[in-house]
């Protein structure tokens, strides 16, 4: 049983590894992270003579965790959503589900292998942005002649774990949308619309419509930003980050960190469970 499970996991990781889209998304993700975390802020710093050395703070190695984490709930979520959609939705487009489902292991086990492989594949997404962020921050420190102070390794690890969880939840959203729509295009469209418009727009009503706040407290965005806040993300430390100033700015409401962790884990489990239930129940036409 375990051996056949590992075989299936190997197959799924092989499929993800051999897809160009996986690497394009990884490249886009790290590119966006560097662009909003380092390149744009540094270009602004260099072009504005009035900026003092304090403007560099967020771009230096010791601030790595908070600078990098700000991207996870926003464009990181969108990227993970697309990865989730593509990993399952493409199977509908290629009609390969019928090929897989006639191999023998059963739909539940096949889907489990897919989800575990997806969660594993998200690890390099979470790690790579930290790695590239480290390189970028060291380059900036060297260019500015500032002594490199390394961030606390424990905080970095917690940041990687928190970022991974956020991406996994968004990937699970993508998987569910792909299963519901039996494809990729509509799933990505709905997912992006939800990410950017629904959660964003309703969050803006918190101050004016009283009953909205309890709803927003359970939004992915609010809980994702709340999870990374104690680690310095979402302007928790510097007060000057992509979360408040960059694209997809988020200014609350924040929830308790434990609640955020629980809500995100429950989201991941419920979304995955719904996808599995649908996939097992529905006909493969």
């Amino acid at each position: 049983m375990l051996r056949s499970g590992l075989y299936m996991l190997w197959a799924e990781l092989f499929l993800l590894r051999r897809r160009v889209a996986t690497w394009v998304l990884l490249g886009t993700w790290t590119g966006l992270g560097l662009l909003f975390g380092y390149i744009v802020p540094y270009a602004m710093y260099r072009s504005d003579d009035d900026e003092g050395p304090s403007a560099l703070t967020g771009m230096l190695p010791d601030q790595l965790t908070q600078t990098v984490l700000d991207g996870f709930p926003f464009y990181g979520g969108a990227i993970a959503l697309m990865l989730g959609v593509l990993s399952v939705g493409s199977e509908f487009g290629w009609d390969t589900l019928k090929t897989l489902f006639t191999q023998g292991p059963g739909r539940g086990r096949i889907f489990t292998a897919k989800m575990v492989a997806l969660a594993i594949m998200i690890v390099p997404f979470a790690v790579s942005i930290f790695a590239f962020g480290t390189v970028a921050s060291v380059i900036i420190a060297r260019m500015e002649g500032i002594t490199v102070v390394w961030p606390d390794s424990g905080t970095v690890l917690e940041g990687v774990a928190a970022g991974w969880l956020i991406l996994v939840v968004w990937a699970a959203v993508g998987v569910l949308l792909a299963v519901i729509t039996r494809g990729t295009s509509l799933a990505i469209g709905i997912g992006i619309l939800y990410t950017l418009v629904i959660e964003g727009s309703i969050s803006l009503l918190v101050d004016t419509v009283s009953f909205v706040e309890p709803v927003v407290d359970f939004f992915l965005r609010a809980n994702s930003y709340s999870l990374i806040r104690p680690l310095g993300g979402a302007s928790g430390a510097s007060g000057d980050s992509a979360a408040t100033d960059g694209p997809g700015a988020f200014s609350g409401p924040y929830v308790d960190t434990t609640q955020a962790l629980v809500v995100l884990v429950v989201y991941a489990l419920v979304l995955t469970g719904m996808s599995a239930w649908l996939l097992r129940r529905r006909d493969v036409a």
Partner: peptide, 24 residues
Amino acid sequence: IETPAFYPHLSGGDNLRVLARYAA
């Protein structure tokens, strides 16, 4: 069943490798 469905970006051999893993 109907038209054969495989992963378009993989070779024929790799497609069978994936299925062989699934079928143990």
